Amino acid sequence: MPSLSAWERGSTASLFDRIRRETPRTSPETELETLILSIKRQLDNVLNTRPGNCRSAPELGVIDFNDATQGGADIYGKICEAIRQCICRFEPRIAHVDVMDSGSLSNPLEMSFLVTAHVKLDDLEQVMSFNIQMDNHRHYRMV
């Protein structure tokens, strides 16, 4: 196994992608697309972890929907802020992030959030937007 010091620090891949060697070198535009896909995979893992489930980082994850409903009426605001803080804290490849409620009025029980994030790779910077929806099992899914 190659040493950790041999890996590039500015790589577009997450640590696990680099360990699995799933990142061929290509053009800067393709690298940016690869970076965005890698970030989405990482966020899928991070956002579906609940605080306290990771011994090395107890604050990793997003509060459970049931925990968000306690002590206040602004459930969506609490969850938006929890998602934003989690992304800022545990996804260093994102420079700036905004999270907004994008739920529909026709189905108020469906929780959906719009995430806008700035991703920077060398001289290229791209704003990525994606939706996160909570499924029936209270897992966050990238849409």
Rank of each mutant, 00 (worst) to 15 (best):
V99E: 04
V62Y: 05
H139I: 01
R41S: 15
L105R: 13
T12D: 03
G61D: 04
D122H: 11
D122T: 08
G61E: 05
P2T: 12
P51Q: 04
C86Y: 04
T49R: 08
D98G: 02
L124Y: 05
N107R: 14
R138W: 12
R18P: 00
Q126W: 04
R9D: 09
F90K: 03
E110Y: 03
G103P: 02
G61Y: 05
R50V: 11
D67F: 02
D101E: 07
V99R: 02
D64A: 13
N66S: 12
T30E: 14
N53S: 15
V97G: 00
E125I: 09
F16W: 12
Q70R: 14
E110A: 14
T69I: 11
N48P: 04
D74Y: 06
E33H: 03
L43F: 06
R25E: 13
E8L: 12
L47S: 00
E29Y: 09
T116V: 12
L43G: 03
P2Q: 11
Q85I: 08
P92R: 12
D67P: 00
E29C: 00
L15E: 01
C86L: 07
D67A: 13
M128H: 03
P2V: 12
K120D: 07
L4W: 10
R84I: 06
E31C: 01
L4D: 12
P51L: 04
I19H: 02
I36K: 08
F16G: 04
L37F: 08
L32R: 04
I87S: 01
A73Y: 11
M142L: 11
F90L: 04
I83C: 03
S112T: 09
I75A: 04
P2S: 14
G77F: 05
S56L: 15
G61A: 07
E22W: 03
D64M: 07
L4H: 06
V119D: 06
C54H: 13
Y76K: 13
S11C: 08
A117N: 01
R41C: 12
W7T: 11
C54Y: 13
R89L: 13
F65M: 15
H96V: 11
I36C: 08
T69L: 15
P24K: 03
D135H: 05
R20H: 10
G103K: 06
V97I: 08
I79K: 02
K120A: 14
R21I: 08
V99K: 02
D98P: 00
R9W: 07
V46I: 14
Q42K: 15
L47D: 00
E33P: 00
